[in-house]
Design a protein around this nucleic acid. Sequence first.
DNA 1: GATGAATGAGCCTTCATTCAT
DNA 2: TATGAATGAAGGCTCATTCAT
Lengths: 227, 227, 227, 227
Amino acid sequence: MPSSKLAERGEDPQAKRERRKEARPGELLDAALDLFVEKGYAATRSEEVAARAGVSKGTLFLYFPSKEELFKAVVRENMSGRFAEWEEEFAAFEGSTAEMIRYCLRVWWERIGATRASGITKLMISEARNFPELATFYQQEVIRPGTDLMRRILQRGVDRGEFAPIDVEYGVYALVAPMIFLIMMKHSLGACAPQDYPLDAQRYVETMADLLVNGLCARAEAPRGRA
Amino acid sequence: MPSSKLAERGEDPQAKRERRKEARPGELLDAALDLFVEKGYAATRSEEVAARAGVSKGTLFLYFPSKEELFKAVVRENMSGRFAEWEEEFAAFEGSTAEMIRYCLRVWWERIGATRASGITKLMISEARNFPELATFYQQEVIRPGTDLMRRILQRGVDRGEFAPIDVEYGVYALVAPMIFLIMMKHSLGACAPQDYPLDAQRYVETMADLLVNGLCARAEAPRGRA
Amino acid sequence: MPSSKLAERGEDPQAKRERRKEARPGELLDAALDLFVEKGYAATRSEEVAARAGVSKGTLFLYFPSKEELFKAVVRENMSGRFAEWEEEFAAFEGSTAEMIRYCLRVWWERIGATRASGITKLMISEARNFPELATFYQQEVIRPGTDLMRRILQRGVDRGEFAPIDVEYGVYALVAPMIFLIMMKHSLGACAPQDYPLDAQRYVETMADLLVNGLCARAEAPRGRA
Amino acid sequence: MPSSKLAERGEDPQAKRERRKEARPGELLDAALDLFVEKGYAATRSEEVAARAGVSKGTLFLYFPSKEELFKAVVRENMSGRFAEWEEEFAAFEGSTAEMIRYCLRVWWERIGATRASGITKLMISEARNFPELATFYQQEVIRPGTDLMRRILQRGVDRGEFAPIDVEYGVYALVAPMIFLIMMKHSLGACAPQDYPLDAQRYVETMADLLVNGLCARAEAPRGRA
DNA sequence: GATGAATGAGCCTTCATTCAT
DNA sequence: TATGAATGAAGGCTCATTCAT
């Protein structure tokens, strides 16, 4: 930012103020995300969000007409389609489906799980029933594309004979569940008493990937009675 | 009016009242559990809890000194260890560890997942950060015994050569994650738009059990490079 | 009220509280009427209304869900059909129409003008544009019946040859205008500086009645070119 | 960009701006009058006034130190005595006093009632109790001169034997009331539901003038009992 | 001068909690 | 014990006013 300022020398006398104005919504959304994730929707006070963003109460309402709209904006802001990007990556993927799944979970952790974006998932799951309209939105914008992607990966494994012909729908849940679990732990119980959850996320993800891949492959290799 | 009641029958005229009186706290905790699970702590109004329990606002505060204490009582009440019972069942279990795991998950679903007790898990995960002492309590009373049990089961499988020598800590997460995921779905997003989550819990549990058991066994049967 | 208390001796232990509960809405409406008339809708604070009624802020909202609903209730409360009563009186009236008009204005002053009900008229006229739905209501419930009544009286005078065949519509305005004027003075400018408006309402009403009756009759007696 | 303006033409480049600058206060007062009349003092937002005048919020406060001062300025600005002018007209009037009254009301309608100046009357009556000093001012600057003028006209009629020897004080009210009534209707209830008040102001004024003149004259021509 | 982003006092409204009955 | 009317602290939101640009 200092560099961009240098490049503008003398022009646009309102630059600093303008820049702030444009930055405000983002700063507020940032502050709001943290607080909503940390304390929940109801326990987060508007004034607190404003304070954390370094502005006064009134300024918040200059950019978001209500606390509810702020909440919605937080959710929308942090979900913007990362799926297009992923779709491409996976369409171009050449390795085995087992590798794909490992890559997929690893990347998910890096881009979502380890970032503040994971807070959105926690938010949605905690508050869904108070914001049904948002839940629908989230379902369409995040969950559907995400599960579609996973479904296609699993199907690829089945089609190529790498995996046993499992029920793909439930296979998707098997992939998603450990990720959701990790997020929920990170943002709720794990955040209260980290010492009780000495969880190395990286290793957690790898282990889950191994286990799932093994589970999926094993059935392809050694199909047995249902057990 | 009390006199007319007296004439009613030979039984103690206060019996019904007494019965109700003793049942009050339980009825209130029941009502509170439902509402807290459905709407979250903050969005649940004391009066609504009282109304659902069929008493007046004042009566609620006769039994629980504050909303916060009510919440804590709800959680504590429903956490009561079923682990002693389970410990015995599993100590006496004679079959393979794979069967144990399948049995374990099935039983968990029947006794926790499918019942209102699952609401407690949802509550804890959603509200943990606002009730850290409860979270600690929950960690000690529920999570630790539960994971200990699972750990012992997994260890049994490893010791008996049924499973590959996996990291048991993470193996526990692999077992827990799908259960937690199922609960969260059931109580949040899944409750908003059931049609978007056409999930047959029974089958979900079986599928997860299969997949996990396969994953765990596969490694014992066919240890390979990394998997 | 003391007498009614005496008559209830010993019965209904909640009598006092009950009675208060039933009296509350009325007390609040009373307080609100005064304040709305005195300060206008916006400048009247909810807490002030409550305080004047001798209760706390919260109690007001126990009886009226919002300030706006309180305002509407104030208007409605003070308009309850006095017209049925008047209709009868005037249907049974036997004297000359001139006497009718004098009686009408005198009675209006006693029952409306001199009472707090006149404040409603001031309120409606001052706030009509901010409460269009109320304005419609007032138009239908008060203005229409009132003007209908006056119209019939004037028509009677014309039909019986007591009055010149004036345009009855405008004749109604001629009767109403001095009353509205009196109310507005009483509640606005006149309330600020009574010494500047040493107005004897009784005499004002009589004088207006005389003048109007003369004006109406004169034309019947001595019809001239239009001037 | 200023340079391109400079090149435009030979005239003072600041002329337009200067002109606007000087016009500002007037434009603001105009906008404010409309809004205050329409919505009342409290419900009129400063920003809306500025917007209607085509300037920014800040500019409004450049010319008027506060909303209250703006309101006072609006009232004062529009009260400017037209009475000197009228005094002259009436001093030179040669016809009958009846004609004078008709002329007076007609002129009042043309110069006040039909113009935005009538809004001031509506404002004063609606807001008087919140601005007592303005009310006093209005009383002195408008009401006193106005009623003095009317009083002199009525007195002339009585002195010349045209009118009965009525109580001139109350006679003045008889003249004023229909005008005030017309204004209040126009700006409040009548503005909400014009279809309910199909009032032809021109004709209304003429009719009132007729009725009043008849009422006043009748008593001179045909003095009877009390009527 | 003009702008409009920022401020924060103030008000409406909610709801956990109290307490007279 | 049970009730529910009453309370008042707390928090969302508005808008007159300020001031850096």
